[in-house]
Amino acid sequence: MMKRYTASALLLLAIVIGACQQGESIDNLETEKAAIASVSGTAELSDMSLYNLESEWQNQENETVKLQHLQGKVQLVAMIYTSCEYACPRIVADLKRIESSLEEVKREDVGIVLVTMDPVRDTPEKLSAFAAENKLSSDRYELLTSKQENIQELAALLNMKYKMSPNGEIAHSNIISVLNAQGEIVHQQEGLGKDPNETVEAIKGLLKKM
C-alpha cells in the first residue's frame, strides 16, 4: 500500500517538474546574468565584500593594485611571511593540495592570494623570489604586501590572530579563506594539513553558480 502511494507521488512529481523545465532555465539565465555583471566589475560591492577596503597593495610584479581587482574570480586567501620556517611552507603546501583537486577547473576562474604579515622584510622583490622558489605561477598566484596598518585591517577581516615577536618571528593562526567572486568570505579552513575536501567543495559550489 504505502509503496504504491509513494511511487505514484514521485511519478507525478516528475511530470510536474518536467512541465516546468522552461521556468527553471529562465532562472538559470538570471543567475548567469548576475554572474556576468559581477565579473565585469561594475557591480556595486556588497556590504560584506572584503573589496570594500580601499587600501593600496603591491604585488610580486611590483604593481600597485587595490583589492577590488581580485573581483570576478573565486579567490583563495592565506596570510604568510616568507622568512617563516614552520607553518608558512605548509600553508603553501595546503593551498597546492587544494589546487591539485581543481585540475578540471579553468585556471582563470580561481585565483590564489598570499598576503604577507611582514611588510618590512617582504618587499615585492622578496615576494617574487618566494614565488619563483615555490613555483607559484603568476597566472594563478598573487602575492601582496602593503603598509602595516592595511595588513592589520585585512587580517582582522580574515579573523587572523597574529603577533610579532622581538626575534622577528610572527606567531599566527593558520587560515585559508575562500572568497566568492564578489569578495565575501564563504568558507574558512582553519589549521594545517586539514582534509581539503570541504574547501574544494565550497569552491566547486561557487563555480557552479558562476
Binding site: 502511494y5 507521488a9 512529481l13
Partner: peptide
C-alpha cells in the same frame, strides 16, 4: 499511513 494518504490526495 495518514500522511501517506495526504500525499496521495495531494498527488
Amino acid at each position: 499511513s495518514s500522511t501517506h494518504k495526504l500525499v496521495q490526495l495531494l498527488a
